[in-house]
């Protein structure tokens, strides 16, 4: 379980990172921040980028800032920083992200880029209509979370683009995220997040991307899920978990 060879580059600025991505475009470059998912995949040789562009030295991509009706979270902000920031549902949801050392090192932007359908940040971004601000050779653009996730490890991000920050609407609504896994710290079998103001739910673990449903009715949401039997997990059980978790998330979010 040793990674394949790659070349290592350190970006000193946002623009520098994009420049590197452009320059190295033919050599399969990949951004690395916390690396908590990427390095594991590289150790299994499931991912074998030719170049790694380390962005952790970029100093203006970390931090949380309220900017009028927007909450801006720098892509390099760690889960742990958010957990301790007192940001309502965002902070509370961080307890579901792996374990302390993962939360200490893993970043918000990395999680969004990795695009696991049960990842807390992906679900929260879709639930709350966050916008993903990215920088590319042609400049910066914002992508609505609802349009960002295409599938596991597959997003609207172009290969030469860098996630700069995640922008949430502010103030945050009464909302909650909850999950079920047999073992603590695991990726959820099913996860549910609800926004009571807009009466919407996002489910993870029921499809290739976080699933947004405009309802808080657990029975209705579970019944409407398009899930199939899989080895060890029937569609019936997945629906049942979704029903339970939506109920629990609503209860947690309710004042």
């Amino acid at each position: 379980m040793k990674p394949a060879s790659f070349e290592f580059h350190r970006a000193r600025s946002r623009a520098g990172a994009v420049e590197l991505l452009t320059e190295l475009a033919d050599g399969d470059p990949k951004i690395i921040a916390g690396g908590q998912s990427l390095v594991a995949m590289m150790n299994f040789r499931l991912a074998r980028p030719g170049h790694l562009v380390d962005i952790t030295g970029i100093d203006d991509m970390t931090g949380i800032e309220v900017d009028g009706d927007r909450l801006r979270i720098g892509a390099l902000t760690t889960h742990r920083t958010v957990e301790k920031a007192g940001l309502g549902v965002l902070s509370a949801a961080m307890r579901w992200v792996g374990h302390l050392p993962i939360r200490t090192r893993g970043t918000v932007g990395g999680s969004i880029a990795h695009a696991d359908a049960t990842a807390e940040w992906c679900m929260l971004a879709v639930l709350l209509d966050a916008r993903i601000r990215v920088l590319g050779p042609a400049g910066s653009r914002e992508i609505a979370a609802g349009e960002f996730f295409h599938g596991p490890f597959w997003t609207a991000l172009e290969p030469d683009e860098l996630i700069v920050e995640i922008v949430f609407p502010w103030p945050l609504p009464p909302a909650a995220l909850t999950e079920y896994a047999d073992r603590k710290g695991d990726f959820a079998l099913v996860a549910a997040a609800v926004d009571l103001d807009r009466e919407r739910t996002v489910l993870g673990g029921v499809g290739p991307v976080p699933l947004l449903v405009d309802s808080l009715d657990a029975e209705e949401i579970a019944a409407g899920l398009d899930v199939r039997d899989e080895p060890g997990v029937s569609a019936h059980y997945r629906r049942g978990l979704a029903r339970t978790l939506v109920r629990r998330a609503v209860a947690e979010a309710s004042p």
Binding site: F8, I32, V39, L52, P101, I102, T104
Partner: peptide
């Protein structure tokens, strides 16, 4: 697990060059 700048980190998920 080791400490990097005081925080516990999985040393298998970090490259030394980082």
């Amino acid at each position: 697990t080791v400490l990097v700048d005081g925080a516990p980190v999985r040393a298998c998920l970090v490259f030394a060059v980082q």
